[in-house]
Amino acid sequence: MRSRVWSGTAAVVLGGLLATGCGGGEKDTPDESAGKTAVSGDDPVSVTDCSGARTTFSGVPERIVTSNASSLELLLRLGVGDKVIGTGFPPGEGSLPGALDAEARKVKVLSESVIPKEKLLGSGADLYIDTFAHMNMGGGMGDAPTEEEFEAAGIKHMYLKSTACAAQRETPVTDLSAVEADITSLGQVTGTSAKAEELVAGMREKTDAVRKAVGGTAESARPTYFFFDYDAGTKQPTVVCNRQVANAVITLAGARNVFADCDGDFQQVGWEDVIAENPDWIQLGVRDRGGAAANEKAFDEAERWLKANAATKGLTAVREGRFLRIGSEHTTIAGVENADTVEEIARTLYPGEVG
């Protein structure tokens, strides 16, 4: 892909999905504690943040606060939902599958968006799981707590590095190893390594099957793909770059992210950049609205906008109706559903080839 002069800078917090890094590069491997099955006083587990600073756990956390639905869902899948005492950015009702939804409803909502600093520090948590990393919080909610403030409040601070550290990656991300490492680390810290291994194995089974089905397709023959972040605003599109989880999802599905030459996680571009790429397929990336009907309405709005806008209505994907209706959360933030999204995209782009 040709080089491009990027217009604008990375957006700040896009409804809880866009995260700025906290410094330093991150490798897509679990922390040194990999292989340990539980936390105990005799067998502590250590995890690192984006800059490599280490946090050590000598016991299983009992009062966990999560920054958003992503980390909450992972804890529910690991079977430790009873230890979660609060969350920010809660999942919409019905957005989680089966029994997970009922469990999520029991968790106290500390904020519908970013948890205010004072509320977080006074929550009584002994662990805060952070999907975002350090950032300047908008909306008058104050700054994020410092590590010294977390320590004074008795709260250990752990990151989902696949998203929190994405902007600081040294190389493009083309697989889900960083997400798998997050799940592995969460399992180690919460004493649920066996369940974490099961979740990771399930993800790999799906992505390996897709890779086997589409792996023979030459790079030049793979369809081009644009993730349209409708909720980030339409005046100037915000795109996913090659350090973002979505780039891995798109690549594994056998497609080519049209903005894979952008080094970082998210970036703002001009519509002229999208027009120049003329993608074969467009994902209507909207965030969960709290129900199937509301979500479909949002997808309809995004599609209508592309069809009505003078800058986009002539795109091949728009003219031919090549849209995928897949929620942003399952594509851009860490979760087991990343593998499901790989399957869903591949089935659409390669009908009959992916089971």
Rank of each mutant, 00 (worst) to 15 (best):
residue 46 S to N: 03
residue 40 S to W: 03
residue 21 G to I: 04
residue 39 V to H: 14
residue 133 A to R: 00
residue 24 G to C: 08
residue 24 G to Y: 08
residue 119 K to R: 15
residue 43 D to W: 02
residue 119 K to N: 09
residue 25 G to C: 03
residue 50 C to W: 02
residue 80 V to D: 02
residue 86 G to Q: 08
residue 15 G to K: 12
residue 14 L to T: 11
residue 87 T to N: 02
residue 34 A to L: 12
residue 59 G to F: 00
residue 126 D to E: 09
residue 110 L to I: 03
residue 86 G to C: 05
residue 22 C to P: 00
residue 18 L to C: 10
residue 110 L to C: 05
residue 24 G to R: 09
residue 89 F to M: 02
residue 54 R to I: 10
residue 127 L to E: 03
residue 77 R to S: 12
residue 14 L to M: 10
residue 66 T to G: 01
residue 117 K to H: 14
residue 85 I to T: 08
residue 122 G to N: 14
residue 54 R to N: 02
residue 93 E to G: 13
residue 128 Y to L: 08
residue 22 C to K: 04
residue 118 E to P: 03
residue 70 S to Y: 04
residue 60 V to D: 04
residue 91 P to K: 12
residue 77 R to D: 08
residue 137 M to Q: 11
residue 66 T to Q: 03
residue 94 G to D: 10
residue 27 K to C: 01
residue 45 V to P: 13
residue 16 G to S: 05
residue 19 A to W: 00
residue 136 N to C: 01
residue 108 K to Y: 00
residue 99 A to K: 15
residue 136 N to R: 15
residue 53 A to G: 02
residue 14 L to Y: 03
residue 139 G to S: 11
residue 25 G to F: 00
residue 55 T to A: 08
residue 120 L to K: 13
residue 105 R to F: 01
residue 141 M to H: 03
residue 66 T to A: 02
residue 41 G to D: 12
residue 48 T to V: 12
residue 46 S to R: 15
residue 124 G to E: 09
residue 62 E to K: 14
residue 130 D to P: 07
residue 51 S to H: 07
residue 136 N to K: 15
residue 133 A to H: 05
residue 20 T to Y: 02
residue 78 L to Y: 10
residue 36 K to F: 03
residue 62 E to D: 14
residue 132 F to S: 10
residue 49 D to T: 00
residue 105 R to T: 05
residue 87 T to F: 00
